[in-house]
């Protein structure tokens, strides 16, 4: 039995302002019954980690379309671990070529959703993989 709603932070790191995808995913997760905090644009890895800690989230969803994912995403994963949030589910959406996915997974990302992914796939993935804290 889930005693509270799944909490998700949807984050836009880097300088990229394309927020169509992040906002659609945020809304689809809300429609699926999750509690969603959208960080707004151009958040640093530190700010995203702080938001995840303060909001005590189960999932961190990172949207990035600029090509800077190899630099930014591993840093967020590291900061989350440093903050004791190793249980949090980290997922990434955006323009991430196949060859970059293994490195991101090694860094701690559970799934990467590429262009054309449906919001239903993302919802299903979260529901089957989230580890909710007591």
């Amino acid at each position: 039995m889930i005693d509270r709603r799944i909490r998700v932070v949807v984050a836009k790191p880097g300088l990229d302002g394309h927020d169509r995808g992040a906002k659609i995913v945020a809304r689809a997760l809300r429609d699926a019954g999750m509690e969603v905090i959208y960080t707004g644009l151009r958040q640093t890895p530190e700010q995203i980690t702080n938001a995840a800690v303060q909001e005590d989230v189960d999932v961190v969803g990172i949207s990035i379309l600029s090509g800077a994912h190899n630099t930014i995403v591993p840093r967020i994963c590291q900061f989350l671990r440093d903050a004791g949030m190793q249980e949090v589910l980290v997922i990434v959406g955006g323009i991430v070529p196949d060859e970059d996915i293994p490195k991101l997974k090694e860094a701690g990302v559970s799934a990467v959703f590429q262009p054309g992914a449906s919001t239903q796939e993302i919802v299903d993935f979260i529901l089957t993989h989230v580890k909710q804290t007591e």
């Binding site: 880097g14 990229d16 090509g67 800077a68 190899n70 630099t71």
Partner: peptide, 10 residues
């Protein structure tokens, strides 16, 4: 510092 990872990408 905020340019890290983004230089020449887009």
């Amino acid at each position: 510092p905020l340019a890290e990872g983004e230089v020449g990408k887009c």
